[in-house]
Design a protein around this nucleic acid. Structure first.
Lengths: 212, 212
DNA sequence: CTCGTTTTTTGACAAGTCTCAATGCAACAA
DNA sequence: TTGTTGCATTGAGACTTGTCAAAAAACGAG
């Protein structure tokens, strides 16, 4: 951790850890894009706000994921802390230096961008043709994939219902109704606000794929 | 044009031109991602097909744009020729070689990916919260941006109504109705299938932004 | 130019989602 | 405990979009 900018663990070495409280803005759309970030603890949402005050969340980032690495002079979305967040912040200049003459770093950066792009395309596909219930089901399935370390089917979601709704392109009411539907069908349980239990994974998958 | 893989015009030098006819598949989702492409003539659509047969178009690529450069072992979407297409095809391996020890190429690739990501996020934002009419208006505005070389307000769209609908996450009927609405309001004209004339750009912008 | 085919457009109705309003629930402070 | 506050859930009705069917328009072949 002593040397800067040239270190086995890449950008980890060049950054400093920063903290953000619940709902704090990490950067705003249009700001000069000086830093890239890596989530250590908590969750971050990338969103765009519209003239009418509504908000579309374009992506979430969980621990170990990196955001703000796109190659634009200004940030194209706003980043906010969902709950309290601990993150690693690294100046882009430093990353650029790392990149030069270091194919591995370059490669890694490409891979992260590719992942974000693929996720965005998946998101587009969801918003373009899935019903409310299908979207909610898909959302929990995606979470399930990421949290495979957890107890069987037990998900803790760091997000409020409003966050989920804004991600899925639905209102909070429609999201709730879809959720209640799934509960009624005994496919999931919601023992508390921030906890979801998947009781019937195959059933959830069937719903996500439209086999109503 | 003689030397391979090390040339001022980057991947142009290393590729060969290939042709595709209308609706031909360039590559399918899941195929091993061997090549990257650059459109020379025509238009290409990237899409995902669903179990129910419906299709979501996630992006279009017009002349001079590059697609298939994401860093995944397999293609994550299907690419098809909208009309007849002429494209430059370049093996990824060759690009990888170019990238090593050549920061400029690396940079360019990052820039292209960033552009795609930003476009995808924009797309998500549109699908997440805009009405049918707003989506159609936004779509024409985006086209207008790209075709600034043309005659004032005259757009030629290489896409069928079905393509537009699949991109906007709407049915073809809803798309048509939105279009007819805009015609009735004298905001656009559609003299032929593949031609749109914007008669009231500010009006179109107002609609795209929700000032109904 | 005319015919036949394909694509686009329109219509009527059904279904899904949104809006607005009210109620329920859980966390927190006093 | 008891309010108080913010978030989540449910209900009823309005509105938008989807579905199915038919008509109109555009295009290509002969």
């Amino acid at each position: 951790m002593d040397e800067a900018c040239v270190h086995k663990s890449d950008m980890d070495a060049a950054g400093v850890t920063v903290k953000f409280v619940r709902n704090e803005t990490i950067y705003s759309k249009g700001d000069e894009a000086r830093y890239s970030y890596k989530v250590i603890e908590g969750a971050v949402r990338l969103s765009r706000i519209f003239a009418d005050g509504r908000r579309q969340i374009v992506n979430f980032y969980l621990p170990d994921e990196t955001f703000g690495i796109e190659l634009t002079a200004e940030y194209t979305s706003t980043a906010e802390a969902v709950g309290d967040v601990l993150a690693l912040r690294c100046p882009r200049i430093c990353i650029a230096q790392l990149t030069e003459g270091n194919p591995d770093v370059s490669q890694k950066r490409l891979a992260m961008l590719s992942k974000s792009l693929s996720a965005a395309e998946q998101h587009v596909a969801m918003l373009g043709h899935q019903s409310a219930k299908e979207r909610v089901a898909s959302f929990f399935l995606a979470l399930e994939m990421q949290q495979h370390t957890q107890v069987e089917g037990m998900l803790d979601l760091p997000l409020s219902r409003q966050d989920i709704a804004d991600y899925l392109g639905l209102t909070i009411e429609t999201t709730c109704r879809a959720l209640s539907d799934l509960k009624r069908q005994k496919i999931i349980d919601a023992p508390s606000r921030r906890r979801i239990v998947i009781r019937d994974l195959p059933g959830l998958q069937a719903i996500a794929e439209g086999d109503t």
